[in-house]
Structure formats: C-alpha cells, structure tokens
Design a protein around this nucleic acid. Structure first.
Length: 397
DNA sequence: TACCCCGAGA
C-alpha cells in the first residue's frame, strides 16, 4: 500500500470512530511523512484521546519529522484543558506559522480552555482584527463562558451581531448556553429570533441549547413547544427536555420517556429517577432502579444520589440507606440526600449521627446540609440540637 | 492532514 493510500485509510477509519484500527494501519507503515503523522495525531485528538495524540506528537518529533501548521493546530486540540499551549505556541513561532488562521484559532482555543490563559487568548484574538473567523469568536466566547465570565462572553457576542459577522451554529449555541447560565431569558429569546432569521434554528446543537435555556429559565412550556416543532431530535434533545421537565412537571417527564424512540442512557435515567421522587412514585422508582442495575449504571455517582433522594422522598428510608451504603464513592450531594432523607422521614437522631460521620469522613458541610439538619430537628422537636447546629453552621459557613 | 457547539443531582 502506498503512503498516500495508507494515509487515506487512516483518515477514513478515524472518521468512522475506529481509531484503534487506524493505529494498526499506522503502525504497519514502513515510512511515514508529516501528513501521515498528522492524520494519526488529529484522529486521536478529535476523538478525545488527548494523551495518545500528544504521545504521537512526541514520537513524531523524536523521528525527526518537522511539524507543519496542520500538525500544530491538531496538537493544540489535544492541549485543551491542560497546559502546553505556550510550548506549542513557541514551536509555531519557530516554524513561522504562528500567524496562519487555523493555528491562531487553535491557539486561542487552547489558551481559553485553561482558566488562566484567557488573557493570552484575548491578546491573540484582538491581534487578529479583521481576520477573525467564526472559530475565533466561538473559542473566545466559549472560554469566557467556561470560566464563569458569561457576561463578558455575551458582550463579545453582541459585537458579532452589531458588526454583522457571519454567525455560526457553534457560536450561537455557546451564547444561548451563556444566557441559560446567567438566567438571561430576554437575551436568550433575542438569540432565538436571530437564529431563526439566520436559518440556524434547524441546527440540532442550536435547537438543543434553546430547549435547555428555556428549561433552565423555567419556561417549560416554551421548551416543550420548541421540542415538538423540532424536525430532528437526538439523545441530547430528549435528555434535555426530560431533565427540564423532571424539575417542574415530573408527569410530563414520565410521558416523554414513554414517547422516546431512542435507548435511554444514564442521564435519562437520572432525570427519570428525580421525576419519580417528585411524584413520590415508589413503584415506578423501583422499576427505574431495576433498569439502572440491568444497564450497569449502578456505580454512577449522580444516579446513585438521585436514587437515595427518590427512596427518601417515597418514604422508603431503608432502601435509601441500602443504596447509600452500597456507594463506594460519595460526594456532598450523597451525604445531603441521605441526611435530608432521614430528616423528612422523622429520623432526626439518625440525621445528626450521619452528619457527624460525614464531618468525620472529612467532608466539609455546606448550607444545604445544615438546612436539612435544622429542618429535621424542628420536625422532631429537638430544640437544643437545632440551636447547637445553627451555631455550628455560623462558625462553619 | 487542521481550529469552534448542546444534556443530569441535595
């Protein structure tokens, strides 16, 4: 097989999601040029195997192959969330490719994916001036949104609208997500209108983020209307509307599960467990628990937390305790659910005892735990214990 | 051969 044919095969295997097979072809190649190395590297990077991608990059350098602008933008994808962007930036400068559009965009993205790289990302973004593309805008806005600066991100998005820059579905869904995070329903609706005008409303990612935004902003009816109008839906769509409705309309969440024409996953079942909790539907909850175990989701932290909460709210404290004790990894939510469960089932002493175990286990209590405990004491008439906890809370929070 | 997107819990 020629070098060119092998590289084409690597590309197509990666695109089909069988990176392992691509690697087998790659390993069999007698000699490899920069294109072959880059195809393998980008295959790993785009399927989220960042460690493997960086490893291929190191081996490529060790083999004396000189990286080009394609290689560097691919390897920058593998630097997302970790460090290393500055190092690749230096290599890009040395190779004289640091001003090439794809490389700059990949640099902005890699810097912005790291909390303290936002300033570096913004510097590159500003220097781009009129050469900014949709990817530059998206990476910059996404960086702000990811690090809790949603409003700065939304201000940048405002510039896109004013300057009439071509709007991409990527940018659009990030901005909608930012609106959801800060609860800015009004701006979210404006982006909704804009997305329809720019013919982006049919894009699945845009529509999914709109459904999510309406759910989070407590406009469940609007979310449902949009969901019903969508010509195409995927698992994310279903999980978004089910999660949204499980909070304010659990019966609708159950009905949606029945209508769902896709196989539910762990996230779906977590939301359905909460819906059962909201309805205090023990029988249903037990069936969901069975489905969770059959699908081997029993070790998932979030679903276990939801099960503890569901059994507590259905009054089955013994089952809640069973799930809680089976968990081999617990977070503050697990403890809160179980402590709150004891409280709402009139077992205030057990709640206090478990709270002590929690502190003993080194978990720092937050205001939700104290609320649950103090409410447990008030229901059980444990006035002194309640006052003591209130003092503990004041000291601890 | 390359950069940017959407989902859950107390």
């Amino acid at each position: 097989m020629s070098l060119k044919h092998a590289t084409t095969l690597i590309k197509s295997l990666c695109a089909r999601g069988v990176v392992r097979h691509a690697r087998a072809v790659f390993d069999e190649m007698p000699d490899r040029d920069v294109v072959a190395w880059t195809a393998m590297l980008s295959g790993y990077a785009s399927s989220g195997c960042h460690r493997e991608a960086l490893d291929v990059f190191r081996r490529m350098l060790a083999a004396g192959v000189v990286p080009n602008e394609f290689t560097l933008s691919s390897v920058l994808t593998a630097c997302r969330g970790g460090g290393g962007a500055a190092l690749i930036h230096a290599v890009a400068v040395m190779r004289g490719v640091d001003h090439m559009p794809y490389v700059v965009n990949a640099l902005i993205d890699a810097y912005a994916s790291h909390g303290d790289g936002l300033v570096d990302a913004r510097r590159l973004f500003e220097a781009l001036g009129g050469r900014r593309t949709a990817a530059s805008w998206t990476s910059m806005i996404a960086g702000y949104v990811r690090w809790g600066q949603e409003n700065t991100g939304l201000q940048l998005f405002q510039n896109i609208i004013q300057d009439d820059v071509e709007l991409s579905p990527f940018t659009c869904s990030i901005a909608i997500h930012a609106c959801a995070s800060v609860g800015n329903l009004c701006f979210g609706q404006q982006i909704h209108v804009l997305s329809i005008r720019k013919a982006l409303g049919v894009n699945l990612a845009v529509a999914n983020s709109l459904v999510d935004m309406y759910c989070i902003c407590e406009s469940i009816l609007e979310a449902r209307r949009l969901f019903d109008e969508m010509p195409e839906r995927n698992l994310v769509t279903w999980n978004t509307i089910i999660a949204g409705s499980s909070r304010c309309d659990p019966l609708m969440a159950m009905q949606l599960l029945v209508d769902m024409n896709l196989e539910p996953n762990c996230l779906t079942l977590t939301s359905i467990t909460s819906a059962c909790a909201g309805l205090a539907a023990l029988r249903c909850g037990q069936q969901v628990h069975g489905a969770v175990l059959r699908r081997n989701y029993g070790d998932d932290l979030k679903i276990s937390n939801a099960l503890v909460d569901m059994y507590s709210k259905c009054g089955s404290i013994s089952n809640a305790k069973k799930v809680f004790n089976m968990m081999n990894c617990k977070d503050i939510v697990s403890w809160t659910s179980m402590i709150g469960g004891y409280g709402m089932n009139g077992c205030a002493n057990e709640a206090i005892e478990l709270f002590n175990s929690m502190v003993h286990a080194g978990v720092h209590p937050d205001h939700v735990v104290f609320m649950g405990l103090i409410s447990a004491c008030s229901h059980a008439g444990l006035v002194d214990e309640g006052w003591n906890l209130l003092r503990d809370a004041e000291r601890s929070l």
